[in-house]
């Protein structure tokens, strides 16, 4: 990632946590102190939140400095990876936004787990994730999917009796 974007992202993250701390400050206004002391449910969040904001300001200042430096140098960094763009549009797209695609897959997995349970969700996730990671030999994929799911199911649910998500449909 380019230096500039990184600095921007850093500023964004620090601001995000500042706002979380501020939000906690606002919410904790409802909590009383213990009679006649500085003790109470709000003391600790306030204290920590305050300190966090101080550190965040330092971080932001540093990031802003770097941002300015990057701008003044005006250097355009070379793209670190050159890749052949082959295959379908879909292929190019998931390659470009690979992490995002993985996150989307995982969100789908999460939803599937809640609805159809562990077995089906996992049988679907493994090939999809392997496809995304460009591991696409059909036979190994099937073997890995079946063996992997079976292994996990056996280890957790059958041997140790630890329940796995069974989903709303069959629960």
């Amino acid at each position: 990632m380019r230096e500039k974007n990184k600095a921007m992202l850093e500023i964004g993250m620090n601001l995000l946590f500042c706002s979380v701390a501020f939000g906690m400050y606002m919410v904790s206004h409802n909590y009383d102190f213990l009679e006649g002391t500085i003790l109470g449910a709000r003391t600790f969040p306030l204290l920590i939140g305050g300190i966090l904001v101080v550190f965040a300001i330092v971080n932001i200042t540093c990031a802003v400095k770097r941002l300015k430096l990057a701008k003044s140098l005006g250097k355009v960094e070379a793209k670190d990876i050159h890749e052949e763009r082959v295959g379908s549009v879909f292929n190019i797209l998931i390659r470009e936004y690979r992490v995002l695609s993985a996150v989307i897959l995982l969100v789908l997995y999460f939803l599937l787990l809640s609805f159809v349970g562990f077995l089906i969700a996992t049988v679907l996730l493994i090939p999809a994730m392997l496809y995304l990671l460009e591991y696409r030999k059909p036979l190994p994929v099937v073997v890995i999917t079946v063996l992997g799911t079976a292994f996990l199911f056996t280890a957790f649910q059958v041997l140790l009796g630890v329940p796995l998500p069974d989903g709303l449909l069959f629960g």
Partner: peptide
Amino acid sequence: PITSVPRF
């Protein structure tokens, strides 16, 4: 832990 107020 001290006042048992449900926080956040």
